[in-house]
Structures are given as C-alpha cells and as structure tokens.
C-alpha cells in the first residue's frame, strides 16, 4: 500500500467510525479520531496478523490499552477483513458483541480491555512469555497519555526495562487530552520522554 493510499484509508476509517458512533449514539469520538492513523499503520504496515489465521501462535499481538477508543479498532479490523463492516450497524446495541470496549468475542481482538492502565502490564506478561517460549513475534500496545496516571503503567515500565523486553512496543497516543480536560490541568504528563528514558 502506498503512502497516499494509506492516508486515504485513514480518512475512510475516520468517516466510517463517525458514522457508526452517530448511529449508536454512543462512543468515544475524540480518542478514536486521535488514534486512527496509529491503528491504520499498525494493521496495514506493521503487524503480522492474518484474519484467516488469527490464532497462529506466531502472530504479532496487539492489545489496545485505551479500550474506550474501540470504534477506531473495530473499523480498522473490519476494513482489514476480520468481519463485515456492516456488523457495526449493531454497535452498542442490546446483546451485541460490538460493545463500547474491546472484547475477545469480536474476531481479531486479542484481549478484553477497557479498564485503563491494564494494557501495558498484560503486554509485559506476553513479552516475557514470548521470551520464555523463544518466540520471535512482537507485542504491541496502544496507550493514551490520559491513562498514564494509572500507577500500574509505571510498574509495568519498570518491569519492561528490568526484563529487557526488546519484543515489546508501547505506543503512546500523545494528544494531551483526557475526558475531563487537558493533561496539564488534570494530571501533568509533560516530559514523558525523559521519564521513560530514565527507566532504562
């Protein structure tokens, strides 16, 4: 896929997720729009995953820590062929599996998430397991900067450095916003690069 095609796909994902959030009258619009490019690039350039062979033990693992931005994930997965896009017509409706957070009941979702500060710790465990099994697959998580105040993240960063987990990729959607205001107002996450480098 060319860079231009990838850019156009991001536009398509954004338009589509807005359509389904509007229809459901539920969802997290800002966060989903914010992480669309990251998901698009991950699923169309980076991750070794196959909708037809999703349980392949050698697949890369993607766990979405900022689970509330599930609409961007669902649309990206549908576009990648994990399930028909039309399934999202039932987003957030009674008895649907397409709920407001990632669930393994949806094909292509690796882990149930939605409680913040959990994605990275789970990925640390997955990365240690991959090392123990002498596997070469990679583990990715997408975090929001608004979830950094969760203390579990910092325990996980400490463990990731301690175990030298070079198979672990923590991506931070650094949009400087969270639900009740800017990070600077709610909980300052400035100098995050310096903080993480200090962990080793």
């Amino acid at each position: 896929m060319t860079d231009k095609e990838l850019k156009l796909k991001s536009v398509y994902i954004r338009k589509t997720l807005l359509k389904y959030i509007y229809k459901a009258k539920a969802g997290h619009t800002g966060g989903s729009l914010s992480c669309t490019d990251i998901l698009n690039i991950l699923y169309n350039r980076v991750l070794n995953v196959d909708p037809k062979d999703f349980k392949n033990p050698n697949r890369d693992r993607y766990i979405q820590s900022k689970g509330h931005c599930v609409e961007a994930l669902f649309v990206t997965l549908a576009d990648r062929g994990f399930f028909p896009m039309s399934d999202l017509e039932e987003l957030c409706s009674y008895q649907s599996h397409y709920i407001g957070h990632p669930t393994k009941k949806v094909h292509g979702v690796e882990q149930n998430t939605g409680a913040l500060g959990h994605g990275l710790p789970i990925c640390v465990g997955e990365a240690i397991a991959a090392k123990l099994d002498e596997k070469s697959h990679r583990i990715f998580t997408l975090m929001g900067d608004g979830e950094l105040p969760e203390g579990s993240n910092w325990e996980a960063f400490l463990a990731a450095a301690h175990y030298k987990l070079d198979n672990l990729y923590a991506i931070l959607d650094y949009n400087k916003q969270q639900i009740t205001g800017s990070n600077q107002e709610v909980m300052n996450t400035d100098s995050v690069k310096d903080k993480l480098e200090a962990f080793g």
């Binding site: 459901a24 539920a26 689970g67 509330h68 957030c92 409706s93 709920i99 407001g100 957070h101 669930t103 149930n112 998430t113 939605g114 409680a115």
Partner: peptide
C-alpha cells in the same frame, strides 16, 4: 454504563 461492557 450498560453498553460499554463488562469492564464498565
């Protein structure tokens, strides 16, 4: 927060 699923 029924529609947001079990985590919520």
């Amino acid at each position: 927060y029924g529609a947001l699923g079990t985590t919520h």
